[in-house]
C-alpha cells in the first residue's frame, strides 16, 4: 500500500508542476460548456461532461507515456506491476475529482430544472473511466501521438454518432449521453440504469486491459531467475 501511495503522490507532484497543462485541463471543458450555453443548455451539460472525460483521458495518456522509461527501473527497485498502474490511477482519479468539482458547482448554480444528482454521477463515472482509457492507450501504444490520435477519434465519434444507435454503445463514454438524457430531459430511470451498467462494464474491461498491458510490458523475462530480493 505504501508503494502504491508513493506512486500516486509522485504522479500528482509531477502533474501539479506542469502548470500550463493544468490550466488547459481546467479551461478546455469550459469551452465545451460555453460553446452551447447560449442556445441549448442541455447540450452544454452533455458537452462539458464529455470535455472533462476527454481532458482526463489525455492527461492519463501523457502520464502513462512519460512514465514508460522509468517503470522498468521501478520494477527492478521492488515495485509490483499492479502498484505502478494503481498508483497512477489513484493520482488521476484524485485529479479528476478536483477538476470536476468546479464544473458541478457551475451547473448547480447556472442550470435549473435538471437532476443534479444524476449529473454528479455522470461526472464521477467520467472520472472513473477516463483515466482508465488514457492509461490503457498509453500502455498499448508506445508513443504519445498515436495515443492522442486514437483518443481524438474516440471523442469525435462520441460527438457525431447517434446515441440511440448500437455502434455508439461501443464507445467508452456512451453512458455520459444516456445518463445525461435522464438528468436533462427527465426521461425514465431506465436511461440511468443503462448508463450505470455501461460505465461499470467499460471500467471493468479497461481495468483488465490496463492490467494485462502493463503486465506484459513489465513482465519478468523468462531467461532470468531471481533468487531472493525481487518480486
Amino acid at each position: 500500500m505504501n508503494q502504491t501511495m508513493t506512486i500516486a503522490e509522485m504522479t500528482l507532484r509531477e502533474t501539479v508542476r506542469r502548470r500550463g497543462v493544468l490550466v488547459l485541463l481546467l479551461v478546455l471543458p469550459l469551452a465545451f460548456y460555453l460553446g452551447r450555453r447560449g442556445d441549448h443548455l442541455g447540450q452544454s451539460i452533455r458537452f462539458v461532461c464529455l470535455g472533462l472525460a476527454w481532458v482526463l483521458s489525455a492527461a492519463a495518456l501523457f502520464v502513462g507515456s512519460s512514465a514508460r522509461s522509468l517503470e522498468p527501473r521501478l520494477r527492478l527497485s521492488g515495485y509490483r506491476t499492479h502498484q505502478l498502474f494503481l498508483g497512477r490511477l489513484l493520482a488521476l482519479w484524485t485529479l479528476g475529482l478536483l477538476l470536476s468539482a468546479p464544473y458541478f458547482l457551475l451547473i448547480r448554480f447556472d442550470q435549473h430544472n435538471v437532476r443534479y444528482g444524476a449529473i454528479a454521477v455522470i461526472m464521477l463515472l467520467g472520472v472513473l473511466v477516463a483515466p482508465l482509457l488514457g492509461l490503457a492507450l498509453s500502455a498499448l501504444l508506445p508513443r504519445d501521438l498515436e495515443g492522442m490520435l486514437v483518443l481524438m477519434t474516440v471523442v469525435g465519434l462520441q460527438m457525431i454518432l447517434d446515441p440511440a444507435g448500437n455502434a455508439a454503445r461501443l464507445l467508452p463514454f456512451w453512458f455520459s449521453r444516456e445518463i445525461g438524457t435522464y438528468a436533462i430531459d427527465h426521461t425514465s430511470v431506465g436511461y440511468f440504469d443503462r448508463g450505470l451498467l455501461h460505465a461499470a462494464v467499460t471500467a471493468l474491461l479497461l481495468l483488465v486491459l490496463v492490467a494485462v498491458a502493463f503486465g506484459v510490458r513489465l513482465r519478468r523475462r523468462p531467461h532470468v531467475k531471481i533468487v531472493g530480493g525481487l518480486s
Binding site: H223, V224, K225, V227, L230
Partner: peptide, 9 residues
C-alpha cells in the same frame, strides 16, 4: 539464462 542472487540496482 541469467541467475541473479539478491536485489538489483
Amino acid at each position: 539464462h541469467v541467475e541473479l542472487h539478491g536485489t538489483v540496482g
